[in-house]
Nucleic acid binder design. Sequence first.
RNA 1: GGGCGGUUAGCUCAAUUGGCAGAGCGUCAGCUUUACACGCUGGAUGUUACAGGUUCAAUUCCUGUACCGCCCACCA
Length: 863
Amino acid sequence: MEKNYNHENVEDKWYKLWEENKYFAPKETGKPFCMVIPPPNVTGALHLGHALDNTLQDIIARYHRLKGDRVLWVPGTDHAGIATQNVVEKELQKQGIHRESLGREKFVERVWQWKEEYGNRITSQLRKLGASLDWEHERFTMDEGLSEAVKENFVRLYEKKLLYRDTYIVNWCPRCLTAISDIEVDHKDENGHLWHIKYPIANTPTLFITVATTRPETMFGDTAVAVNPSDERYSQLIGQELILPLTNKRIPIIADAHVDKDFGTGAVKVTPAHDPNDFQIGLRHNLEKVIVMDTSAIMNENAPEQYQKMDRYSARKQIIKDLTVLGLLEKTEEHAHAVGHCYRCDTTIEPYLSKQWFIDMKQLAGKPIAAVKNKDIQFIPERWEKLYFDWMENIRPWCISRQIWWGHRIPVWYCEDCNKEIVSKTEVTACTCGSKNIKQDEDVLDTWFSSALWPFSTLGWPEKTNDLKDFYPTSVLVTGYDILTFWVSRMITMGLFNMNEVPFRKVYIHGLVRDAEGRKMSKSLGNVIDPLIIIKEKGADVLRYTLASLVTSGGQDIRLMDDKLVAGRNFINKLWNVSRYILMQEPETNGEIGATLADKWILSVFKKITDETDKYYNEFEFNFVIETLYEFVWNEFCDWYIEMTKLHKQESQPTLIYILNGVLKLLHPIIPFISEEIWQQLKTHPLFSDEEKNSIMLSSWPEPEPSTFDVSAFEEAKAIIKNTRNIKAEKNIAGTKKGKLLVSSATASLASYEKYITYLSGLESTTFSLGQTAPTEQHAYSVISENTVIYLPLAGLIDTAKEKEKLQKEAEKLLVIIKGLENKLNNKGFTENAPADVVEKQKITLEENISKLKLLENKLSEA
RNA sequence: GGGCGGUUAGCUCAAUUGGCAGAGCGUCAGCUUUACACGCUGGAUGUUACAGGUUCAAUUCCUGUACCGCCCACCA
């Protein structure tokens, strides 16, 4: 074995073994435990967000397998409508091919080709990470089964009148040329302008009403100017007409309570086709809706001729210029406001009037809200419930139609003759009116429409499959908080709607991975850390270990930097080397586990940390799992236990193997590759069952016997050794130098650890002897506890004055502690109010410190 | 405008119902101790952002302030 662990060639080898032998498939027996992967975009490459999310899921899956559960972790990818279409479109443009010239059918074919070619990239990257997904269950949101699920869901919603088509102001992306839903809009604060424009009053064109707007280019769509009915400035004018500048259109002055008297001039231009508020005002006042731009946000024929064919920003500039010339621009104010941007391409969103399909989420929200309130679904951490409730309780209609080509085609047909709207799960070729002049809706569905069905569509729904019966509701959903509203809330909604049962029992919500400065990783910032490079250079285990060690119970965001990978790398190397050492020992197959004092001690500690680790895995506290195991492996197992076994190598061999075997299993969910690698080298030992010999994945969670070992006495003996080393270090004495250690202690206390200290003194090359008084020769000493002092005879090496000074300082420190404790215990408020055990603990601590001080003082008076 | 999170050792972060504040990295001293220098042994390091309050006791609970970050939002 090499001195340093080398992950290369190891990780792929074991993954192949696992996958080929179908170790990821659910067993026949055991308690069902199911997770579905948040499906990555089919065009995507593994980034750190995926690495974190899937590491956590894999840890959970592997833990539950070790615990004997029947684990199913479902893999799959998402067609990611707009995102994928954009990528393929760009790719084609490089070849000089445009989507439009290709035509819909050919284009979609190209996307499928792309999907076949690149769709496996991310799944192969998940393998590199070690994800134990059951690949036989792999699904794609546009595969046949899932398409059936989408249609089924659409029809069900439609039949219950929860899904409808309507003409409405939607968020329109003039670059993607599609509507998007409210949450797909990113609002960004921008420094814009508030232009005050004078609209002449028709009867007396020398008088004006000044309106304030941030978007003058929409003015050609103005069909009214609204004022607040109680605004005295304008009350005389309500009902009169204004002349829309740059046109000779006449528009009315209307009163609407929505208008804020104190903002701007108190008069608002009303553009029902280009602003959601104005749309509402338009409905109330029955105003005409004039669309002044085309789908690419180019001014159309409803604008005066000189502005037609200008894009919205050029038109804005020109309009301001022209108004200035006419003396109709009263003033321009700086104005910061939030502007919507497309979350896919960052283009400024245009509120646009169009006919779209919507889901009435409000009506569906009742059960999903109740399910979380009743704890049918548990959010971890709980605080995310608040965001969920805020979202669900104020939910608005979900616009689900997209004017793109890549996605699930909306299962609706229209009769060109009688205008009938036919919703159907199967192809429609004729209308009930007899007409065969029928066309399917051109639009496709929002990607999240199919993702919302993921927990049951991947299990076979709408078919009644065994998978559904066995694994729905799934056990845990693991995801980042960024898609709580996009995905989690919609899965809960659709799960309850279709299955009448929640889609998962728990939602474990982790933070996002950020760069060293806490910024989001993005290509434009150039701060992206590629997990595949980390995997290649340091190994998937190091990446997994590091990510898992950084998650906290509060779900804080994680900042990743190279420094943090060091601890993982070091730990894995430590584990490697201790294993190497153990494997170098002569095998001892006849011996017993727990033969020596050291063995008994480490077994008792192992029992304790096994239980702790178990608890932490269950509670998703993976940072504590790691903390516990790191502490155990490094500080107990390596630093103490291994050193002790060197006193009796043969006898301890069985225990050594037993503990290493157990530790590998406890660590396996976190670092599957190296745990398998060591396992495979260790497996010839008879401790291993035949089945286990194939893989650590086939082993089971360790169940050490409860121990009656007197750990505290052993720890006290360890403290004596530690103090001995301290003295040696201070006096510059090599650890290997033979010496004599005298322990002066109260008889009762000594009796409990005498055998331990006798045993452990072997570690320090000292001989141990018991004495009630200080030796006569020159010596160093240390007060261990309230009744124990140790002496190290060190003739010629002691500076008495310095020793005394040291003791005095120690005594002073003790005195401060004692004073504090005394004050506390003299305080009736404390003794009467604090719980008895807390008071008792303080009393004991006080007594210990007083005895300790006494020992110090005795020592000082001797000197 | 509303909401959420954060502020703890030089750095990055923990601290599980309020009870002596911890880790990793870094740092200092000494070590070629036959698994590991990615190591061993032993150290040092805190006004827990600030100001109040509740309590016998506050990093922890409450109120407020400051700064950082995030999310939501139809005042043009």
